[in-house]
Write a protein that binds this DNA or RNA. Structure first.
Length: 328
DNA sequence: AAGACGGGGGC
DNA sequence: GCCCCAGTCTT
């Protein structure tokens, strides 16, 4: 990993934020791309917000991107581009929680703070045979206490890196490599043959299905777009005029609704795309794209701006939209 | 304490 | 189809 051994807190911060709830293989390209475009926190702070979101496009959890920009600007303007060098000060920054603060503090400043991430939860739950669910307050307290007690205070960065590497490569979520594990003789879960049962998690999320019908009226090689600003998924990404339904709805009915909005004339020829499904952790999005080529500019798009189709590639869109644009 | 928030990959 | 991922923020 390109950030390994790096001491630059900016690079550590950037890599850790990118890797929040994200696999290394997925985040790697984004990290390299960001460093290439923004070598320093000053460059990131000075960047156009749309450009930053475009680089983040497809990575998900877009509030990370918003907070990244916010914190870069704060460091650049209020802290003279110097990254805070205490755990408490780092933790104050937007988008940085206990995990990322401990990672930056230990990797960049050799401060004795234990990282507690998914790997650490899993490794400690197994080695110490913690049967308490780790997604409860009680379970988290047990793991946190263990992690802080086990931390090598002399080399916290090395220790933190090691336990996470160990969790990622040996003590994996599925099919852990217990046969070659150096902790085999010390692992409660291995001894009691409950490795596959740990860690215990209780909560499960309900997935709701949403039905999106996007309109792509193409007029003089432009289409209406707008930034998603409501408190919903894909905040700060762009979208086309959208009609959302609570259930699957025939295209004819959607088009009638669009006609009532002034989005198109009833006699306009339309092209209906197949259904694109996008599975989020908590929602299932089923999207249909309805394209048409109106003879005159439709009126009912007050909240949208007409963007050249060739310029769409500079705007950040949700995955499901970029997938359709790729086929379009 | 519980939800909201993306997207991809393994099995 | 379900689970997990180098989590954080809001309610």
């Amino acid at each position: 990993m390109p950030w390994k051994g790096i001491k630059d807190p900016y690079r550590i911060w950037l890599s850790e934020v990118i890797l929040q709830q994200t696999r290394v293989e997925q985040g790697l390209k984004y990290y390299e791309n960001f460093i290439h475009n923004f070598p320093t926190v000053r460059d990131l702070a000075a960047a156009d917000e749309k450009k930053v979101f475009k680089l983040w496009e497809g990575l998900g959890y877009y509030s990370r991107c918003k907070n990244l920009i916010h914190t870069a600007r704060k460091i650049s303007t209020e802290l003279n581009s110097r990254f805070p060098d205490s755990y408490a000060a780092i933790l104050q920054l937007k988008g940085i929680g206990p995990y990322t603060a401990a990672a930056i503090a230990s990797f960049a400043f050799n401060l004795p703070h234990a990282v507690i991430d998914g790997n650490v939860f899993r490794v400690l739950a197994r080695v110490f045979g913690i049967r308490e669910a780790i997604d409860t307050t009680a379970g988290k307290k047990i793991i946190t206490a263990l992690a802080e007690q086990l931390l090598d205070k002399k080399e916290p960065g090395t220790y933190n890196q090691a336990i996470m590497d160990f969790g990622a490569t040996v003590c994996r979520p599925a099919n852990p490599d217990c046969a070659d594990c150096p902790f085999q003789n010390h692992c409660v879960a291995f001894r009691e043959d409950i490795v596959a049962l740990l860690p215990v998690k209780t909560k499960k999320i309900a997935v709701r299905t949403r039905y999106f019908y996007f309109f792509l009226p193409i007029y003089r090689a432009t289409v209406p777009v707008r930034e998603r600003l409501s408190k919903d998924i894909w905040q700060h990404l762009y979208e086309f005029p959208l009609i959302e339904k609570a259930a699957e709805t025939p295209a004819a009915e959607i088009i009638r609704a669009a006609v009532r909005k002034g989005w198109l004339r009833q006699d306009t020829l339309t092209e209906i795309s197949p259904v694109y499904t996008q599975k989020l952790s908590h929602q299932l999005i089923r999207s249909v794209f309805i394209a048409c080529r109106p003879a005159a500019k439709p009126a009912g798009f007050e909240n949208y701006r007409w963007e050249k189709i060739t310029a769409l590639k500079t705007l950040p869109f949700p995955r499901t939209i970029t997938q359709h644009l790729d086929n379009f």
